[in-house]
Write a protein that binds this DNA or RNA. Sequence first.
DNA 1: CGACACTTTGAAGACGATCAACGCCGGTGG
DNA 2: CCACCGGCGTTGATCGTCTTCAAAGTGTCG
Lengths: 251, 251
Amino acid sequence: MTIKSETLLTLPLFSGLTPEENTRLLANSRMRNCEGGAFLFMHGDTIVNFYVVCRGIVQIFRATPDGHEVTSDLLIAGDSLNADEIITKQDTHNKNARAVDDVLLLEIPTSWMLENLSNFDHMASHLMATLSDRLHSAQIEAEHQSTMSATQIVACYLQRLCILYGFDPDGFELPYSKTLIASRLRIELETFSRALKNLRDEGIEVDGTHVSFTDTQKTSDFVCDQCSLSEECPAHIELHKTSQNITKYVA
Amino acid sequence: MTIKSETLLTLPLFSGLTPEENTRLLANSRMRNCEGGAFLFMHGDTIVNFYVVCRGIVQIFRATPDGHEVTSDLLIAGDSLNADEIITKQDTHNKNARAVDDVLLLEIPTSWMLENLSNFDHMASHLMATLSDRLHSAQIEAEHQSTMSATQIVACYLQRLCILYGFDPDGFELPYSKTLIASRLRIELETFSRALKNLRDEGIEVDGTHVSFTDTQKTSDFVCDQCSLSEECPAHIELHKTSQNITKYVA
DNA sequence: CGACACTTTGAAGACGATCAACGCCGGTGG
DNA sequence: CCACCGGCGTTGATCGTCTTCAAAGTGTCG
């Protein structure tokens, strides 16, 4: 499996690199294939690599003391797996990462990343921006968790999904199983199922895996500003475009 | 109000600066005093400054559509107020910041921060580490929110409070009002009050504002690993030491 | 002393989790 | 070809926990 240099350049993260740095990046990174169900790394493993998803879906999750699995995130092409672990005091992963379907990863040693952060404008600024965005999202989501009903949370999630993946609001298919989404939203599958029924009243029709926003006005009154279809998030749009580029080049 | 240069050097964030850079930092920053209740900035305001708390308590909060206030964080000396807003696409604050008591702040223009991030090792690495830590904490907390009972959440919080502030586990006073803590934990004041009663069974005695861990064994069985007294978090300890240094020098 | 903010306590209600049963579908094996 | 199974999703009933509303208690400060 070879990587075209243009591929890496399409990632915002590497967009500031000089041609020379890019060459060294290619020499130090490699593509890794993971079949569905395989662990990319586990909680407690030593941190050695930084990963970027190029194709497929990766589930980030943590195990509670009682053995229950809690999904922290679902990542798609263009997402970095563990940007927060490049610079950290601890040397072991604080979460599990598992391939949901067949996944293609860009694998770069964290040591190499660290050495090449020295020029801020080349990579570090992008990395910091990513961390800032993630932090902001995490805080918004925590706020949602405690102020909105399960139905509202699901509505917001579907909206963001549609924006992030660039789906057609008039009709699209859920990209993951309902079990996975429920876990991601930290609600039970049963609650999720019931929430989907309630959404009909709010202008969101869900039948099987098919979703369609039937009454945009009603929906936007219901979901939070941050997740509204009307408000396009530039970062997400860009990310999605990048994802498409990567899958195109790497294939 | 003058700032001794040693004061700034005690902040991990600025520990990599050269003497020359430090001089420029002093020239470009200033101390700001805020009395209790005053807003440092509001949601929607243009982002112009980066702030570090030197004394007092700052409440970060957001308003829900229905007018309710949700506390995102409570910051003490040594904490940066808006590290995530130095590098971000949006140019307006995404949260409110209010002085709880009388607060002393270090105020630095974000433009200056941006210009001086260019050498990664001097400041940016510390900033990134801060963001990573925050992100990790936010994720852990979101996980707690959905997997633990209110009583457990309170127990974990008291443990972390004790570690972070360097209090004596055998007995210390709550640094904020119960209303504020409840808001921070995203639970109702009534629930918080009842949780404190339940904690007696878990080896945590709370009477008025006085807290004491009476049965360390029992407590550590009850709270999550991350928040256990037994496990000392180096970053927090360091932060607390820094806080003490700042308040000492700046006074 | 009285006003006021903060906290506690009680009772009722809402919401989501949990448990249990069932329907649906794709795969496997006889 | 059909019977069986397991994963997935739905639906119903019940239960526990947190929120909500209401009232009373506690403390401080004028």
